[in-house]
Structures are given as C-alpha cells and as structure tokens.
Amino acid sequence: MSITLRKLAVFTKVAETGQATKSGELLLMSQPAISMALKELEENAGGQLFIRQGRRLILNDRGRLLLEPAQEILRRVARFENLLAESERQPRGLLRIGASTTIGNYLLPSLIARYSCLYTDAKASLQVGNTHQIEVSLDRGDIDLGLIEGPSHAPLLKAIPWRNDELVVIAGREHPITKINSVTADMLEKANWIMREPGSGTREVFEAALAEFGGSINIDLELGHTEAIKKAVEAGLGISCLSRLAVQRELENGWLVEISTHLNLTRSLTILLRDDGYRTKLLQSFLDMLLLNEVQGSECASRKAIQK
C-alpha cells in the first residue's frame, strides 16, 4: 500500500473544498494530478471515498471515517517539520495563533508585526473566532496557541492570565439613555440590546456582571462581528457592551457614548496552551513576548535599522 503525504493532503483539501479544481489551485497542483491522487488513494482504500455530484465531491461514510486520522497525520508532520526547522539561535517556522474577536482584531496585529520584525525567519497565521471556537481549535490541534476574553471552559487546556480588559456599555449619541445621569439595572433590562452570539467571551462576561444584580437583558439583535455591532449602535438600533479596546476611537470622536453603570465589567484576557509538556522555540518565543510585554515597537525598528 502506497499512501503518501501528498495523497493525504489532496484528500483533506478536496474534503474541505468539495472541488478538485479549487483544491489544485490551493495545493499548486493540476486538476489531472488531483484526480490521479484521489483515484490512487481510493484504490488503496478499496473503494470510493467521495460521492460525485456534478463537479462537487462530497465525502461518503468511509471518507468521513478516514478524514480525521488523515488530518491528524498532517498536523503531526507539520509539527515535526517545525521542529526540524528550528535554529539554535532563532525560532523558525509557522506559528498558528487563534484569538477571540477583540484580541484578534485590536491587539494581536501589532504584536504579530512586532514578532515578525524580531524574528525574521518566523511567520504567524491568525485565526479569529469566538472563545468557544478558539478552545475547540486548540484542543483539536488546528492552532498552537489561543488567546481568549474571559474564563476558559476547556479543562484540558492550560490557561495563563495575560492582561486585564474593561468592557463599556455604549449607545449612539442621539439615544435617549445618554441623557440620563444615573442608569439603573431596571433601565438596562428594558433597553434594546445588540450583542455578540452565544460563545462570545464579551457576552459571557457582561451577562455574568448583570446577573450579580439579579438582572437580565432583552437581546433584539445578535451579530457575530464587533464592527457590525458598533455601526448598529451608532445608527440608534439599540445599546451594547463591548471592550474599550474596540470602541476607543468611536468614543474619542463622539460617534458613540459611554453609559455609566454600576456593573463590574473588568475581565482577564487569557492565554491558552495545550498542556502536553513541550513547547517549541517558535511557540516559547512568542509566549515570552506576550508575558514580558517589554519589547516595544521602537526597539524593533531600531534593530531593523542596525541590521541594514
């Protein structure tokens, strides 16, 4: 039986895209080469792995059974290649980072840029999702490190406190609630809320803070993206609660107004790792940068100038 890593890569990519042509583009292979690899793999498997529906290729029950083991093999090979690529002097390879929405959109881009500047042979990819999605991806091995907002609900993952964040209740500048000096819990309950979806760390922290006062809220609209929520609030469709990191620009420009409440809206941002006892130099160097928080962008720029 001749099952190569290339065939497994073709199998998993076709399972993901459902198309031989699209898979070929992503793998830099011709469509005939993709078809040949699938044919040989199905011969090795003793039968078809896909159902053909026009140009669509859909996994059958046998294909679904083999998909997860194939993905696991490719993940282990990628990790092995990273280990081989590591230099004694400098980390090398691709670090796969996952982050919940606020961290991924407002904190990590500059940190990844700083990291890439410091370690020119290291690269990073970023997956952004809600807290639950990041936990699942890390547990499954799709990413190497996760950063989430609020507490973790994955007991098998190692959680490390990173830094504090503050949520703020916001409204559009013409919203009637902005004219009230002291907003009560009852007013918050009766307001129309625009919030993130279940599984979002921001929503979980806010609901927990409100529950301390025995209250709950009426969610009129759920949106999966922070920018969409800000625009909806700015348009007067309701009020919301988001990280100060996400709304600082809008508050400074007066497009949104912060509503003072008695709620405890501070939270801890958390680093998540698989607790498998080993960290590559690539992973450890990024983790050190996050925890030390001492390497400034100006230092990176100075280092690049010296290198030139």
Rank of each mutant, 00 (worst) to 15 (best):
A159E: 04
L292E: 08
N130C: 00
L290E: 00
Q90C: 07
Q53A: 10
A301G: 11
I58D: 03
G199S: 09
A191C: 06
P151A: 02
V77D: 02
E189I: 03
E197G: 05
K123N: 12
I143N: 07
T4D: 09
I271E: 02
T184P: 14
E68C: 06
G277C: 09
A209K: 01
I259Y: 10
R75Q: 13
A232M: 05
F50A: 08
I259F: 13
P69G: 10
N105W: 00
S240I: 00
D220Y: 09
L74D: 06
L28A: 15
E250R: 10
R173V: 00
D186N: 12
K158I: 01
L138F: 11
P109S: 01
S87Q: 13
D144R: 04
V233P: 14
E43R: 02
E294G: 14
E294Y: 11
R244H: 11
E250H: 11
N293Y: 07
A99C: 10
A99W: 02
G224H: 11
T102I: 03
M187Q: 13
S302A: 11
Q71Y: 04
H153I: 07
R249F: 00
S260H: 10
I180C: 15
Y106M: 04
I148Q: 13
A171N: 10
S30H: 02
A78F: 09
E166A: 13
G104S: 14
A171Y: 02
N60T: 04
L245H: 14
T184S: 15
T4E: 00
L265F: 04
L145V: 11
A99E: 00
F213C: 14
Y278V: 04
I229Q: 01
M36V: 12
N264Y: 01
S182V: 02
L66E: 08
E294T: 15
L118C: 14
T178A: 08
S200D: 13
L26R: 11
E72N: 06
A185G: 05
N44H: 11
L65N: 11
I160M: 03
R64Y: 09
E16F: 03
L265Q: 08
Q133L: 09
K39M: 10
L49F: 12
A154P: 07
A45C: 12
R75I: 07
R203Q: 07
P69M: 02
V247R: 02
R52V: 03
F11N: 09
K230V: 08
L256A: 08
G47H: 05
I148A: 15
W255P: 01
E88F: 01
V10F: 02
Q71K: 15
M1F: 04
E234L: 04
R56I: 03
T226A: 15
G104E: 06
K13C: 14
F11I: 01
L38I: 12
R249S: 15
A37N: 05
Q248Y: 13
D275L: 00
L5H: 12
R163M: 08
L283T: 14
D165W: 07
T12I: 06
I51S: 15
S152P: 01
L269I: 14
N264E: 06
V257T: 13
G214N: 09
E212G: 07
G98S: 08
S30F: 03
V128L: 05
N82I: 06
A15S: 14
D165M: 08
V77W: 08
L118R: 14
A20T: 04
